[in-house]
């Protein structure tokens, strides 16, 4: 199999399989969580659930003042990584072409130098976050195999994408195939790891905010 054949396989059957695992996996996981249900609360409510639940879904994106003061590094590095990753994923021209091919939707891309910068920043943030995970006593203590594995499968697509775009080190076809393979690895790992937080955090925040709202606690 030469690099062109490999590319064909990677972006054909392999990609389809990865997407199926990702989509079905995420649906099953979410379904599995929600199916567990929650006992009805018989205590007389002091406030509503929906409004505060939805508000918390948004408001938890911002840290409280004390947390920011005590742990600014985690907060800032977390923001930088997430924003950088989303820009790189959703605002780069080649990716938008792909989304257009799949869903028929198109949106404006950022100029290449900006997407480039965001990819570099995302990579730096990831490297920094790994170093911080190893150096910070709380994080190192909490971390296990899954945390480092998830870090790796998140880094690889960004790194290979950057190299492929700049035709660095390897022939373009080979690099593109590696990039797509890395994305497939991410997609397949997604439903089985806490990468799922991308979706489940909305559920978690809603439950938290709704419980507070019911008791009349401002969220």
């Amino acid at each position: 199999m030469n690099s062109v054949d490999f590319l064909q396989w990677v972006r054909g059957p392999a990609f389809d399989a990865a997407v199926v695992i990702f989509v079905l996996g995420v649906i099953f996981r979410l379904f599995g969580i929600l199916m567990l249900g929650k006992k009805p609360d018989l205590a007389e409510p002091r406030g509503g659930e929906w409004g505060p639940g939805l508000r918390t879904v948004l408001s938890r994106s911002l840290p409280d003042r004390g947390t920011f003061r005590r742990e600014p590094v985690t907060v800032v590095a977390g923001y930088v990584f997430h924003i950088g990753f989303f820009i790189t994923l959703f605002l780069s021209a080649p990716h938008i072409e792909l989304f257009h091919a799949w869903f028929g939707l198109r949106w404006p891309a950022l100029p290449t130098p900006l997407v480039d910068a965001s990819a570099v920043i995302t990579l730096l943030a990831l490297v920094f976050l790994l170093a911080y995970r190893l150096a910070n006593p709380v994080r190192r203590f909490l971390s296990g195999f899954e945390d480092y594995f998830v870090w790796g499968v998140t880094l690889l697509p960004v790194l290979t994408g950057y190299l492929a775009y700049h035709h660095l080190r390897l022939p373009y076809h080979a690099l593109l195939a590696l990039h797509i393979l890395a994305v497939e690895l991410l997609l397949v790992a997604f439903p089985f790891t806490h990468l799922m937080h991308t979706f489940t955090l909305f559920v978690a925040r809603w439950y938290n905010g709704a419980a507070s709202g019911r008791r009349g606690v401002v969220s």
Binding site: G32, E71, R139, V203, A204
Partner: peptide, 20 residues
């Protein structure tokens, strides 16, 4: 229950709760 399953599924071991 569903809330607990959603909480455990979401934790990314960021450690911010330690500081709370």
């Amino acid at each position: 229950d569903a809330p607990i399953a959603s909480f455990f599924s979401s934790c990314v071991r960021c450690g911010l709760c330690a500081h709370a």
